[in-house]
Simulated assay, not measured.
Amino acid sequence: MPKITRKNTRTIRIGNVFIGGGQPVLVQSMTNTDTRDIVATVAQIKRLEEVGCELIRVAVPDEEAAQAIKKIKNQIRIPLVADIHFDWRLAISSLEAGADGIRINPGNIKGLDNVRKVVLAAKEQGAAIRIGVNAGSLEKDLLRKHKGPTAEALVESALRHLDFIVGDLGFENLKVSLKSSDVWTTVNAYRLFSEKSDFPLHLGVTEAGGLIAGTVKSAFALGLLLSEGIGDTLRVSLTRDPEEEIHVAYEILRAVGLRERGPEIISCPTCGRCEIDLFPIAEEVEKFARKIEQPIKLAVMGCVVNGPGEAREADVGLAGGKGVGLIFRKGKIVKKVKEEEILPAFFAEVKAFLEENP
């Protein structure tokens, strides 16, 4: 795999993590609970922490949600970012409640005086700001100038706000995102911005879609950018449980060669030789694997004849046949069990392997 030379960006701090400057690409997500429901929001964040989420964003639609941040933060481990739209006062309330960072959209936080108040509050609290430019809410003058939400328009919006926040207000604990639901607009905007600025970039395709469409669009766009050394943190936006976003994000990073977390799963697509219902077995293995941090290789095969041989590089694997299940390591069969015992036997073998190879 070719070595990726990452763009040298500034290092910023959000809570207890650093972004940019050669730090590992950070994986983040956003809750889909009502932030005002503290119990549900904390429970979801803890599930996300378990599967590798390293930074979480919560929606702040009103003052009650802003005030909930303090109680939420006291119960989680990862940095918390408040997502702000329209009302600059909610940004300040969120910061005062302990948010480690805020995301503001320049297209809907109106007036430089309001932006100034938010920046001064972030500076006072030692928090970070993400300038989140979005194709759906660009400034009207830029839409007229560029004849639509083009990559150039997205970049000009970001640079305009950097000029004010950095140049006039002297605040530099910033990262930037330039998102569109169109893949090529997104890719070209990030490429163009990375030529003009060294502020760290948060990657994402906004409103990417459901599991399949969203995964494909995100993998294509983010994979391209990451392979070019662009990107310091990312979110895969899916119309699914946010745990799926974390899973897809790490698979993208693994495929590009930037990070490995958790098992790589090799599984066959099934064919006429398959004599077990492999799909639900594969799904159970995926669920089991998400809480494993070590980058081991697992195999799920549907054929006892060729399965172990085809997946001989797997650390631990399973192969099913009519009424029979085989458990193997590195292509060598170590256990033969009844078909209904294959998952418990496989999970036990994986746990044993992890204990032997911490």
Rank of each mutant, 00 (worst) to 15 (best):
A352N: 15
Q125M: 14
F193S: 01
A91C: 12
V25G: 10
V118G: 06
R47C: 14
R6E: 14
T233S: 14
A135I: 07
N32G: 10
R254F: 06
L26T: 06
A127G: 09
N173F: 15
G262I: 05
V27D: 06
R103I: 04
T11P: 12
V51L: 14
E251N: 08
T5P: 04
L258N: 09
I333S: 02
D37N: 15
G204T: 06
A68D: 10
K217C: 10
F279A: 14
V119H: 04
A213M: 07
G209V: 14
D37W: 03
N134A: 10
E340Q: 14
L253T: 10
I230N: 01
E172S: 15
T206G: 15
I292E: 13
L95V: 06
T9E: 06
F328E: 00
V58R: 01
D241V: 10
S177F: 05
F346K: 04
P280M: 11
E286T: 05
K110H: 12
T150C: 12
H85T: 07
A65W: 01
G320F: 00
A127T: 05
G323A: 13
E64C: 05
K70A: 05
D315A: 01
E54F: 14
G309T: 07
E275Y: 15
C274K: 02
W88Q: 12
V118T: 09
N114G: 04
S29N: 05
I69Q: 04
N114I: 02
D315P: 01
E228M: 05
I19P: 06
W88C: 11
R312G: 01
A43G: 14
E156G: 10
N32Q: 08
K196C: 05
A151P: 09
K338S: 00
S197W: 06
P24C: 03
E50H: 06
P295T: 13
G136I: 12
D315R: 00
S157H: 13
R36I: 04
I327F: 00
I109Y: 11
S94K: 03
V133A: 03
I212E: 11
A135H: 13
I246D: 03
N32D: 11
K322T: 02
D100W: 08
A311L: 03
V155N: 08
E139P: 01
A345Y: 04
F86P: 11
G325W: 03
E260C: 07
P344K: 05
V115C: 04
G307A: 03
A153K: 09
R240T: 15
K332F: 10
D182F: 09
A151K: 04
K46I: 08
N306W: 00
N8V: 13
V334A: 02
G21E: 02
A249T: 02
K71H: 13
A91H: 10
L203A: 07
Y250P: 06
R77E: 13
S157L: 07
G111R: 11
G136K: 09
V51K: 14
A289H: 03
V248F: 08
P24Y: 02
N306I: 00
L225Y: 12
L154A: 09
P269G: 09
I102W: 05
L142Y: 15
V155Y: 12
K196F: 07
H202K: 07
Y190E: 01
P2R: 11
V205K: 13
N108F: 07
V115W: 02
D34N: 15
